[in-house]
Amino acid sequence: MERVTPPAAGGADAERRSILKLGWIGVGIAALGEMLWIVASFLKPRRQESKNDGSLIVAGPSDTFAPGSVTAYPAGKFYLVRLADGGFLALHRQCTHLGCSVPWDEASGRFKCPCHASVFDLRGDVLSPPAPRPLDIFPVRIENGIVKVDVSAPIRRSAFDPTQVTQA
């Protein structure tokens, strides 16, 4: 059987081949990029879906919270803390170590994480490791004596400072 022998190297033929080869590689990369784009678009709507719609939680009149008290808001995933000086702080209930829900321990006056034994004080500061930073906070607004907490996105902080507190 007669076989088609490839033309000798060099000349216009070889050049045409190398250009075609480049073309194929280009088409291949484009196809791969397109597939990745499709995968990304499938993963995208998950973000929007998990966003909090009711991002503003009305906690109630500020004078109903006693200084030094902690009130849990399961719907907003935060604790509304009224410090001894009367200032408000909304602490995210998620432990900064690995994301467990941190319960408030009334007896000791501390937040104690059940997962890895991190302990936080009333202001969310770390008293005991392994948590690497204080509990995240949500912005608190007081309008006409009503406490409102914006839970759209928790704010990270490296330590407690008085500017985080909203005074009544």
């Binding site: 993963l43 998950r46 973000r47 879906e49 998990s50 966003k51 998620q94 994301g99």
Partner: peptide, 13 residues
């Protein structure tokens, strides 16, 4: 972490 969970917390995604 957000990618693995499909959001900031574990949910339907």
């Amino acid at each position: 972490a957000n990618f693995l969970r499909g959001g900031p917390e574990i949910g339907p995604a």
